[in-house]
């Protein structure tokens, strides 16, 4: 069964007036509108948020200053090591 890769988005919620947006998790959606609707359904079912942001995971550049040097993975520039963050040439085949 072939499940196509659907883009990955990170979800941020501002739960109360005055607070900043906090990362809540991620989800898959084909476009921004679906991502936002899905985020509403998955992350705010209990009326938990007053504002939602969805950002393509690929668009986020990350660094973590907690631990420098060797302890930090060289893949640091992405939020995390996800298979679809990295372009595998078609010739290489399924990976």
């Amino acid at each position: 069964m072939n499940l196509k890769n659907t883009p990955l988005w990170e979800v941020f919620i501002r739960s109360k007036n005055g607070l900043s947006h906090v990362h809540a998790g991620s989800l898959h959606a084909v476009d921004a509108d679906m991502a936002l609707q899905n985020a509403r359904d998955v992350y705010t079912r209990r009326a938990e948020g007053i504002s939602l942001w969805v950002v393509p995971s690929n668009a986020i550049k990350a660094s973590d200053p907690v631990d420098r040097g060797e302890f930090f993975e060289p893949t640091a520039s992405k939020v995390y090591r996800h298979p679809t963050f990295y372009d595998i040439p078609d010739e290489v085949g399924h990976m």
Binding site: L27, H28, A29, M34, Q37, N38, D41, R45
Partner: peptide, 11 residues
């Protein structure tokens, strides 16, 4: 068709 839509339909 996808889990996310299951949640939307439940809503």
């Amino acid at each position: 068709p996808m889990l996310e839509e299951d949640m939307a339909l439940s809503n």
